[in-house]
Design a protein around this nucleic acid. Structure first.
Lengths: 152, 152
DNA sequence: TAATAATGTTAGATGAAACTAATTTTCCAA
DNA sequence: TTGGAAAATTAGTTTCATCTAACATTATTA
């Protein structure tokens, strides 16, 4: 197993992957904006990511992911997907909130729990046999509306 | 609202509350053992908690919670309870794992999400009307067994 | 009750992650 | 083509949370 990288660095890595898709090249300023921090903090993070072999980094040059970086991202974004899906599909949060919350949780929730959420999702989505679960979802939304909980 | 204290300090505070219940007095070594860190780190944490007005601390004396500390603990342990309950009751994890995971998550999961988990629990537990949900739980456990997921 | 073991604290170092201010590099437009 | 603006980096500081090693205090027990 690869030695898990810190939550902060993981976030940088994700934004790098995102920006790469959107703009091809990844610029320090854009990263800073996304991360809500100063450019100098980004440089520092890039250097640490580079030391860990997750990105290719040289001063003043555009950043790219290494194969290891790609792998890390793949796992992470799967985690993110499952979490967001769970929050939206089971707990009935709006997509946007589910995304945000997934961002904050994906670095902390254990793999085990995430896999279990996926199983729960599979279970609920296991259609035909189990229409009760679909019924439950809409029932839950009604129940939610009638509860004192303010919608997110 | 009170200024949220860091996750690490929150953990110390919880263990302090725990130990207080168990042994009356709270000793540095016990805390260190619980937290899996050195005694000196505990001292450091105690000093910071004290500065924030959450505990009464003087060198070489037993530690007690301030009223503010008590309040913080109350909120935290409610979060913990809901999380652990959700993990055990909805995701069908063994109690012990649910407890551990709750410890790690309670400092990160947003209040909003935790409240929603409580609503979901209420919904599922809303007995009579909704026996479908109880059925679902045992169905889920079967489903789980048949999936490739290793039990925690 | 004095010596020793156990417990607790201080001081100083480290690493992560942020910041500001100063400097360097790159790039574009006159 | 060069000179200034934008972008990026460096240097140095801060805070948090940990560590080790050394020192201080309390407790035990011979």
């Amino acid at each position: 197993m690869k030695e898990r990288v810190s939550g902060a660095l993981e976030s940088y890595l994700e934004q790098i992957a995102d920006l790469q898709q959107e703009h091809g090249a990844v610029r320090t300023s854009d990263l800073a904006e996304r991360m809500g921090c100063k450019r100098s903090s980004v440089t520092n993070a890039l250097q640490r990511l580079s030391e860990k072999g997750l990105i290719n980094y040289q001063s003043y040059r555009p950043v790219t992911l290494t194969p290891d970086g790609e792998k890390t991202i793949a796992a992470l974004s799967r985690y993110h997907r499952i979490l967001a899906d769970f929050l939206a599909t089971i707990l009935a949060f709006p997509e946007e909130f589910a995304q945000q919350e997934a961002c904050r949780l994906e670095h902390r929730v254990s793999q085990c729990t995430i896999e279990r959420m996926q199983v729960y999702l599979d279970f609920v989505g296991s259609g035909a046999k189990n229409t009760a679960s679909e019924v439950n979802f809409s029932q839950f939304k009604k129940f939610l509306k009638s509860s004192t909980d303010k919608p997110a």
